[in-house]
C-alpha cells in the first residue's frame, strides 16, 4: 500500500472502509446489541476504549518482540491472548479506579473478547505495515466508524420494532435488509479517495 496521509487513513477508516458495513467485521455484536440505543452506546464506548489499547499494545509487541525473534507465525495466538487478557485487566482496573464507568460498560467488556473487529484491527495494522502514529489514527478512526454505524442502526431498529411485518421477516430478516440499505449509502463514500 502506497503512502497515505494521516487524514486519509482517518476518513477512510470511518467512512470508505467502515468496519461493519464495508468490511463485515464485528457483525455479531452489531446485530446483538443494536436493538436498543443505550446498549449500542455502551458497547461502542467499550469498543473505542479496548480497540485503541489493543491496537497499540499488539503493534508494540509485534514490532519489538515477535519480529526480532522471528516468531511471526505465533501472531494469531499472541494477539488473541493479548486482547483477552487486556479486557480482563481493563475490567479490574475500571472496577477499582472508575467505578462509574465500570457500571456503564460492565456487561459489554467481556463480550469484546470475541468481537472480531478488535482482533481484525490488530491483523490489519500488521498487514498494512503502519507505523505507531498511523496505527493510533487507524484504530481510533475504525472505532468511530463502528460507533457511527451501530448508533445509526440502533435508532432505525427502535422504529422497526413498531412496524407491522410478516412473521417470517420479523427479527433478523428485516435487520439484514435494513443494513443492506445502510451499506448501500456508505458505498457512496467510495469515490472519496480513489481506493
Amino acid at each position: 500500500m502506497e503512502k497515505i496521509s494521516l487524514l486519509g487513513i482517518f476518513i477512510s477508516s470511518i467512512f470508505v472502509n467502515n468496519i461493519i458495513l464495508m468490511r463485515f467485521l464485528g457483525l455479531c455484536s452489531f446485530f446483538g446489541v443494536s436493538n436498543k440505543f443505550s446498549s449500542a452506546l455502551g458497547m461502542s464506548a467499550a469498543v473505542f476504549f479496548v480497540m485503541n489499547l489493543a491496537a497499540v499494545v499488539s503493534w508494540l509487541l509485534y514490532n519489538y518482540v515477535l519480529l526480532p525473534l522471528n516468531l511471526e507465525f505465533l501472531k494469531i495466538i499472541v494477539f488473541i491472548l493479548i486482547i483477552s487478557s487486556l479486557v480482563q485487566l481493563v475490567e479490574l482496573f475500571m472496577k477499582k479506579v472508575l467505578p462509574a464507568l465500570f457500571k456503564a460498560l460492565g456487561i459489554y467488556l467481556p463480550l469484546i473478547t470475541t468481537n472480531c473487529a478488535i482482533l481484525a484491527v490488530a491483523f490489519l495494522i500488521v498487514d498494512y505495515q503502519y507505523n505507531l502514529l498511523q496505527t493510533v489514527v487507524f484504530s481510533s478512526g475504525t472505532a468511530i466508524g463502528y460507533t457511527l454505524a451501530i448508533i445509526l442502526f440502533s435508532s432505525i431498529r427502535e422504529k422497526l420494532e413498531l412496524a407491522p411485518l410478516p412473521n417470517a421477516v420479523k427479527g433478523y430478516g428485516i435487520v439484514f435488509v435494513t443494513s443492506a440499505l445502510m451499506s448501500l449509502s456508505f458505498m457512496g463514500f467510495i469515490g472519496l479517495f480513489g481506493f
Binding site: F24, N167, G171, F176, L181
Partner: peptide, 22 residues
C-alpha cells in the same frame, strides 16, 4: 458481490429459512 448485496441476499435467505421453520 459488493457488501450491500451480501446483506441483502443473506436477509432473503434467512427470511426463507424462518418461513420454512415456522
Amino acid at each position: 458481490i459488493l457488501p450491500p448485496g451480501g446483506f441483502l441476499v443473506a436477509g432473503v435467505v434467512i427470511t426463507i429459512t424462518k418461513y420454512i421453520e415456522n
